[in-house]
């Protein structure tokens, strides 16, 4: 009887609301809480302090931050160039074959990222698939490309490609045929149709691809560890070390909070510049 006092909507939303509170908000709040605890403590309700943040500012953690952001930015840039033509093809040209292309890009996702990256190690390692073949067949001896920044980027582009490709494909597919034809009919050249109509109208998909792959790439760690041989230390690595070897949860939490702030700020900046609703004509 007392339940009837609540509207049906909030009542129905209650289970998922509780689930989100426990599964999403609580861990996040815990991390934020830990970042204000004294170093190397494990309680959440001690005297709050800013020591962790001060320590980070005084340390060289900014290098890891910059590495992570730079690697993510370059990955997104490379992905944009690679994915647009493929997305265009999948949305407009391949027809029934686009299903096959989709499968080719998604099936690797069923295999763990680590396994796939170790596969690349075997491919690139000295006397491995690539260099071993070159050596035995052509007698060419080259240095391994493993443990370079380039190979880390290779790994990141490889791992995050689907996250750029599929939103982008949706974006390109969203442009109605009649609108492209109308632009052409009004006298636009193919390039003008692309620049004035197709690109702006597929922007929502492209932006979502950018954001998704950027946010994921900033959190990348395995590529640097496995392919890069720790030549580059991304910020996630610092956070992991603080939580594990160093047993300094508050420092790790503070780093995590800072990363969230930086990424959140960048994402908001992009979303303000590209108003998705306005692009979609919903406003």
């Amino acid at each position: 009887m007392s339940l009837r006092k609540f509207a049906a909507g909030p009542l129905c939303a209650l289970p998922i609301g509780l689930f989100l509170l426990i599964g999403f908000a609580a861990p996040l709040l815990a991390v934020i809480g830990f970042s204000f605890m004294p170093p190397r403590t494990f309680g959440l309700f001690l005297n709050p302090t800013l020591v962790n943040y001060i320590e980070i500012v005084d340390s060289t953690s900014y290098i890891s931050f910059l590495w992570s952001l730079a690697l993510a930015a370059v990955t997104v840039a490379i992905l944009a160039v690679i994915c647009y033509p493929v997305a265009y093809g999948m949305a407009r040209i391949f027809g029934k074959w686009s299903m096959l292309v989709t499968l080719l890009f998604t099936i690797p996702l069923f295999v763990s990222e680590n396994v796939r990256l170790y596969g690349w190690v075997l491919f690139f390692i000295k006397n491995g698939v690539l260099l071993g073949t070159l050596k035995s067949v052509f007698g060419i001896e080259a240095d391994s490309w493993l443990f370079t920044t380039g190979i880390i980027l290779w790994g990141m582009v490889y791992v995050y490609l689907p996250f750029m490709l599929f939103p982008m494909t949706l974006g390109v597919a969203m442009v109605p045929d009649q609108i492209r034809e109308a632009a052409l009919d009004l006298g636009a050249t193919r390039w003008q149709v692309f620049r004035e109509v197709e690109l702006p109208l597929s922007m929502p998909g492209i932006m979502i691809g950018f954001l998704l792959s950027f946010v994921l790439a900033v959190g990348a760690i395995t590529e640097a560890k496995v392919l890069g041989g720790q030549r580059v230390i991304p910020i996630i690595h610092d956070i992991e070390i603080a939580f594990t070897y160093a047993q300094n949860w508050p420092l790790g939490a503070a780093l995590a909070v800072l990363l969230m702030l930086v990424v959140g700020f960048l994402v908001l900046l992009v979303l303000r510049r590209f108003d998705l609703d306005a692009i979609l004509g919903r406003r």
């Binding site: 009649q178 609108i179 009919d185 109208l201 692009i279 979609l280």
Partner: peptide, 13 residues
């Protein structure tokens, strides 16, 4: 020549 489409095909952006 120019065509007015069934969907009008105006540029929503």
């Amino acid at each position: 020549t120019c065509m007015v489409f069934q969907s009008l095909a105006l540029f929503p952006h």
